[in-house]
Amino acid sequence: MSGDNIYAGVSGAVAARRLGWGWFANAQGVARRVWARTTARDQGGMIIRYSVLPGFGLTLGLTLSWLGLIVLLPLAGLVIHAADLGWSGFWDVVTTPRVMAAFRVSVTTALAAALVNLVFGLLVAWVLVRYRFAGQKLVDALVDLPFALPTAVAGIALSALYSAHGWIGSVLTPLGINVAFTPLGIVVALTFIGLPFVVRTVEPVLQELPPEEEEAAISLGASRLQTFLRVILPALTPALLTGFALAFARGLGEYGSVIFIAGNMPEVSEIVPLLIIIKLEQFDYHGATAIGALMLLLSFVLLFVINLLQAWMRARHAH
């Protein structure tokens, strides 16, 4: 077993060195040393557990190599490329009004869409889990449609629907509500894209929620609202949080569906991914990577905050 792991690790490290990614080989070395320490502890007789499916060494080695190749390598490339700009160059790119505005638009619209999905995703999940009705399978399939549909198709459909002459747009425009080619349009597109994330994360948790807890609350004199707020919602919060985070992250990176409906006016309805494309089209590779690196940072911070929140909730609920 140990042989397998070392081979996997070594081959990964060698490949990385050949590619000139010294840091990657180094990371593998660290992983191997950590692993070696655990093994020593095993041999010391402290933790010996029989594994039904052996191959920890091999699988860990493969996992690390694979994640390194697929996830870390491109991201590291991005950071290193952006680093060529130097700190002040990087700062100059990302603090231009246009870039700042794009970030503001991207974050606020993604946040708004994720919040809308939080409410309506919970509603959809609730209906799908708690009731049996004709056409349920169809509704269930509809939820997955935003996953499957090419996002550009969704974008074109939405902009046709919400433009001043579209079915919905022709009703809203006389009321003074412009959806297409405004940030509101971006929210609509991102809501469409993000819905399945909330529904599909909340659904299984809702299914596991024993109805007796609700009955217990009712028999203790709680009203329906109290039962929902105090018993059901707290049990769903971790799942809601995960769904929200997924929808939000997806919204931040969404490109295809947004560009058709957004209007893409600089500093008003221009999103960050589009700005990156624009920079690339102008052969401003450094500008593009700088914005990309900032987005990467933003994603990391988001992931970190979400994980922190979940850890905190888990500790609190002690499941």
Partner: peptide, 28 residues
Amino acid sequence: QVGFVFQHYSLFRHMTVFNNVAFGLDVL
């Protein structure tokens, strides 16, 4: 005004023992 004790206890998992017992009074 009945007290119901369920077969599988059905305690509120996200509440402490204290808050579980206090629930019926808290919701008054």
